[in-house]
Design a protein around this nucleic acid. Sequence first.
DNA 1: CGCATACTTGACGTCATTCAAACCGTGTGG
DNA 2: CCACACGGTTTGAATGACGTCAAGTATGCG
Lengths: 232, 232
Amino acid sequence: MNLACATCPVRDSAACAVLEPEEREALARSGRTRHLKRGEMLFAAGDQQTACATLVSGALKISAHDIDGNEQILALVHPAGFIGEMFSPFASHDVVALTDSTLCTFGRKDIEQALEDYPALTRALLRRSQEDLHATRSMLEMTAHGSAETRLAALLHDFAQAASTSPCHPADRFELPLTRGEMANMLGLTIETVSRKLGELEEMGAIKRTGKRGIEMLDPAHLQALSGREVL
Amino acid sequence: MNLACATCPVRDSAACAVLEPEEREALARSGRTRHLKRGEMLFAAGDQQTACATLVSGALKISAHDIDGNEQILALVHPAGFIGEMFSPFASHDVVALTDSTLCTFGRKDIEQALEDYPALTRALLRRSQEDLHATRSMLEMTAHGSAETRLAALLHDFAQAASTSPCHPADRFELPLTRGEMANMLGLTIETVSRKLGELEEMGAIKRTGKRGIEMLDPAHLQALSGREVL
DNA sequence: CGCATACTTGACGTCATTCAAACCGTGTGG
DNA sequence: CCACACGGTTTGAATGACGTCAAGTATGCG
């Protein structure tokens, strides 16, 4: 299937937004739209000659597996996010759809050509890469020094942020995009601990759980205080 | 002081290695060489309009501080490494010299111009950024799921790797570039735990400590097995 | 020599994990 | 319709790893 940039929901926020219309047109001809169902894999660790992609809608997780097969989620990808290790001969992590997702995919050759042809695209990807780096370092910071409660509060705060339409105010109600097990994997905790801490956060009045996945933010300031993050 | 690319020890491995001689020459005219003594700070978190730099010799740490002032080391920078958040209006982390260091620094304006003028440089920085991202994710993986012993073993293995001249075989003897406190900060542990675990690794015959900082790798395979990393 | 800084070692407490059991919503087959 | 199995989740009790507090040991430097 060919790309339909004209109706693309991330046409103004994805990396390709920096291109001129005719450049974008040309790039679109080398790309393909792809749909993934929840749980489907885009790349597997070890794949050779992997492509890369921009996420149009849905959500992905990037995860690694240690020798015992335990999963560790390293990052989430939201719409307009870019995935792909253009400079490595093989993928080092799995990329899996958390929900039904739509992507623009590009072959290795095509993206290399595009980097040659469109310096502005390269700069946009550099910027994105640095933002990813920054996000990963924030996660590292949390994981290394925070308590279970701290980490969970930060994760909830991030989800509220991501679920919000406005860029600076968090949503006050949202659905968790991850199972307890996936949250535990992200935070380096166990399912049981996540479950218990969610209960504690509810007891102290910071959140309210509705159903298995619904979260209502009763006291976002408290969560943010717990998470120890600076306000931007 | 002006740059002396001709005698630069990282002239073939730093990002600027991709430039043509005359391009490099031009870039050099906008850069400045800077020397830092152990403990001196290059950037502080919150600095505005920060520059960026390539490390020529020595070693740096990139670290964050939580609200209580606890330091968390997020990354180490080795020679040929690039430092700088070109797209953020202010620095989010401290950058401090671990040993006496030499750098090539570039002002914000100059590097922006260089990104415009030299697409190859932008690509080189993109590559480097992705490598940094990968390294940070590896650290995240360790920190989230590994035990204290596991993490320390991985750190020692990395140091042995970095201290080696050959790119694939680790050195069998090296000096720790970090104090116990700095190692603890990196790994999200305490000084005491690091000290204890080093003792245990020595007892089990994996390493031998000589003096405060000297490490002899008696059983690198064992350390690597502990660290749980794939062999590249 | 005396003080400072880095490191080591021990006793004890805390928090997250582990193991185990029960719970709940959903789908399946009798 | 009910029984039942199954995945995701919750909850409890016991264990253990790492942190905390507190002393004690080098090593170096004025």
